[in-house]
Each structure stands twice: as C-alpha cells, then as structure tokens.
C-alpha cells in the first residue's frame, strides 16, 4: 500500500477560529498568573491607588490646577493614563519571563496559532488595565473626583486610554522579546516611559513648565491622550485631542504590531 496524500492546511475559517480560541486560552493563562502571584496583584492594584492618594493629598496642594478646576478632577484623567502607560511595561516583563523559562519555545513547537502568544499577552494586559482603571475610578470617586460630562463621554474616555495602553503594550512586546530577562526589559522601560509620563500634562499643567519643555510636553502622545480623556470626562473641546490621541494609538499599532510579530518569529 502506498500513501501519497499530502497534508492539507485547514480551511481559513477553521484557522481563524482556532487562532481566536488559542488567544483566549493564553489570555486566561496570563490572567491566572496575575491572580496567582501576590506581587503582581500588588504591583497592579496597590501602586495605582497609592499614586492617586499621594498626588491627591501630598503633591496636590502645591500644584496649581487650571482656573475653575479642582486638582483631583484635573489629576484623575492623567493618573489613569499614567497607570496604563506603566502597565505596558508588564507586557514586556511577562514575555521576557516566558522566554527565559522556555515557555515560548514550547509554544513555538506546538501546532497552535503562533499569533496567539502575543495576542493572548496583550489582551490579558488590556483586561488587567480595565480592572485597574475601574479600581482607580472608585478610589478617585472616594477622594472627590467627579466627572461632569455624563457616563457616555466618561466611558469614551476610558476606551480611548485603554486603547492607548494597548498600543503601548505592543511597544513593550518588542522590548520583552529582545530582552535577555525581565530585569533588562524593566531597565529599558523606565528611562523611556518616565519622561513621557512626567513631562506631560498628566500631573501638572504644561504651562507651568519652562518654555523649551512645553513644546515637547504639549504634543507628545501621553499628553494628547491625557488632554483627550480630560476633555471627555471634564468637558471642553474634544475633537482635536481625541483625533491626535487616536492617531498616535493607530500609528503605534501600525508600526509595532508588525515589528513585534517579526521579532517573535525570529525569537529564541
């Protein structure tokens, strides 16, 4: 007897369905890790709450909010964006750890949709951000934050900053895949993120900065996203900052998703 039939790739519909199922399975696995490791829970919940409280009660008194706004209302949109920006580092750290432990190698040897490794990681981190933003909104409410524009613009603001955080996650996918270990991923992350997050409109009005810094601070992606979220949650012109923020988000995704996918195929 001779067997000459050739292997057939499953039809596209099956492949897409499997890719979604694989990504869901890995999202579940990544979220389970957050639940299982107390230090990760602390990192992603206690730390953002501490930031809210410290800026509200320690620095807040010394910062002059724009006229007609309370500092806590000015602060909360900024601190939401800050937390998803720092959260993106976790994406890189998680991937670097999986690589170091040989898990990525195992995934790459399995007959699974390879796209699901990165999709599952970034989706899990998006889900974590949903939880963190919800938690911070509750804490913010307790310390006096009141969004004046109503639930729909508020949710639109949340969606905008979550998408921005998702795009940043892909930047750190690239960092994580290139890093030798979690510490390296972290070391690369903070020098790039700190200037973006703190030299921005997140915690202080840009007008309070020296002139040479204002040009950068007013136009960089964190600031335009904070401005857009602020406009959606507190009122003011929304179209320009929302468009600018969306352009950054889409631009980052357009550049970094293909780069990360290429890096993954060559990883290890």
């Amino acid at each position: 007897m001779t067997v000459t039939s050739t292997a057939v790739r499953p039809p596209t519909v099956v492949r897409v369905r499997r890719a979604v199922a694989d990504a869901r399975a890995l999202t579940w696995r990544n979220l389970l890790t957050y639940v299982r490791l107390p230090q990760l829970v602390v990192f992603s919940t206690i730390q953002p709450i501490m930031f809210v409280l410290i800026f509200r009660y320690v620095f807040g008194g010394a910062i002059q909010p724009p006229p007609g706004q309370s500092y806590v209302n000015f602060l909360m949109p900024g601190i939401f964006v800050q937390s998803v920006a720092f959260g993106a580092v976790g994406t890189g750290i998680g991937l670097a750890e999986d690589m170091g432990k040989g898990l990525i190698e195992r995934f790459r040897s399995l007959p699974m949709a390879q796209s699901s490794v990165l999709a599952g990681r970034t989706t899990a981190d998006l889900a974590r951000n949903v939880f963190v933003v919800f938690l911070m909104a509750v804490v913010g409410f307790l310390v006096g934050f009141r969004a004046g524009t109503g639930p729909l613009p508020f949710l639109a603001g949340v969606a905008l900053l979550l998408l921005f955080g998702y795009a940043l996650s892909w930047v750190f996918v690239l960092v994580g895949l290139g890093a030798a270990n979690a510490e390296t991923a972290q070391a690369v992350a903070f020098p790039t993120l700190f200037p973006l997050v703190f030299a921005s409109s997140a915690f202080v009005p840009v007008e309070s900065m020296p002139g040479w810094l204002q040009a950068f601070a007013a136009n960089q992606p964190v600031s335009v996203t904070v401005d857009a979220v602020r406009a959606l949650m507190l009122g003011g012109p929304t179209i320009s900052p929302v468009l600018q923020s969306s352009a950054w988000t889409l631009g980052i995704l357009a550049v970094f998703v293909p780069l990360a996918a290429r890096r993954y195929r060559r990883a290890i």
Binding site: T33, R36, K101, G102, E105, R106, S109
Partner: peptide, 15 residues
C-alpha cells in the same frame, strides 16, 4: 506530528 520536552522544564510554574 512532533512533541518536544526540553532541557528546561518548560511548564508554567504558576499554573
């Protein structure tokens, strides 16, 4: 058609 078990135990230690 393949299975691979590596030098490092590539299992997720948090699961």
């Amino acid at each position: 058609v393949i299975g691979l078990a590596g030098q490092y135990a590539a299992v997720d230690e948090n699961l």
